[in-house]
Design a protein around this nucleic acid. Structure first.
Lengths: 202, 202
DNA sequence: CCGTTAAGTTTACACTGTTAACTGTACGAG
DNA sequence: CTCGTACAGTTAACAGTGTAAACTTAACGG
């Protein structure tokens, strides 16, 4: 019964269905057989286009990283003041996390076990996003253009603050009495605290 | 073949083996059949003592929360200065996370899907830990003894900063060039930035 | 017209958590 | 002493999971 027409688009069909299912039911509910059933092929066919399930997941992560990068890099707009640029980045990051729950999860929360063969191109794509923060921090510290180790470090601290907030929120560990907007505001404020004024250094 | 002697300790055996396997191979590798095989019973026997796998996990989380609470509450020792108490708490939290990787993971990273029937006692136990931070913050803000909403909020922000660092570290999302000690130092420093001096308020 | 290549399929394996039905022992009541 | 019941634990089974190997079928080049 094998279709003779080499269905060039099957890979895309798989990817589309995987994304759809992930966004609808969560990435944990992804199953080779379910995806296959939904698009009318067999589970093993997927292995013609993806090495294994992780490989399929990596393709989605890749997509997610691109979306994040777009959202981050357009967020700063024409804003000149480096501190305000930073704030825009933080807000954009949080917005992305909230609006793209499942993408965020596979990008940042997926256990390293699934990353054993994580392709290096994804690492590079991920680094691009952090560098947006780092260069804004470099600018704020009065050395635009060149990202120093300190900027790199501070970018990680800011990132950790944001990620921690998102992670606790998404895993529902926050106290239910907490006002979530105040919380995120406080988080952004504290993240921006990590920015040293121009000239001053710790 | 059912053993006549009612093995009163089977529940403990299960729990011990589950903990052992979790610490040795990670909680993801926990399997009812593996646990059963290791202690010489059948998988279905476990259901006599735990409602399901999540229930077993919850028992381990319970244990982990206790360990964390011990580590946190003994960390401050005789230190009087509230800011230093806060720092001790932060350090103790990070140490716990690093030294108890798997416990940390099931406590803080486990997906809410596994928490559907999360017993309320665990919530209370979890809140105890956050309250240690909140009351130290209340003290630092000059209103010892009574935890205000602001303290509660700031405690969450501090917690998010710490958790973010741990989460990124444990999921191996940090840049490999990053000096991990400098990173954690920066994180603690920034977490403490969230503490307002006595009297001042945002 | 044959042989090769590639796309898809069927089948199978080794797992997973979980339920239902069953077995055998211990103990208390008649 | 025997019967009944409660209980601890078992076996068998179901509905899933990812994935490898072998097989089928269609298209194309010589």
């Amino acid at each position: 019964m094998a279709r003779a027409k080499p269905n060039k688009e099957l890979r895309d069909l798989i990817l589309d269905e995987a994304r759809r299912e992930m966004l609808a039911q969560g990435y944990r509910s992804l199953s080779m057989r379910k995806i296959a059933a939904a698009i009318g092929c067999t589970a093993t066919s997927i292995y013609l286009y993806f090495k294994d399930k992780d490989d399929l997941l990596h393709a989605l992560i890749d997509e997610g990283l691109d979306r994040l990068h777009n959202q981050l890099s357009t967020s700063t707009g024409e804003v000149k003041d480096p501190r305000r640029r930073c704030e825009r980045l933080c807000r954009a990051f949080l917005n992305f996390a909230i609006e793209n729950r499942e993408f965020y999860e596979i990008i940042f929360q997926l256990h390293p076990e699934h990353m054993k063969r994580y392709p290096q191109t994804l690492y590079r794509r991920a680094r691009r996003n952090l560098d947006l923060f780092a260069s804004a921090l470099a600018e704020a510290a009065g050395r635009p253009g060149k990202i120093s180790d300190v900027d790199h470090l501070q970018a990680h601290v800011v990132w950790a603050q944001l990620h921690g907030a998102v992670a606790l929120h998404q895993t529902q560990r926050l106290d239910f009495r907490l006002n979530i907007f105040q919380f995120f505001d406080g988080v952004v404020r504290n993240a921006l605290n990590a920015i040293p004024g121009p000239g001053e250094e710790s």
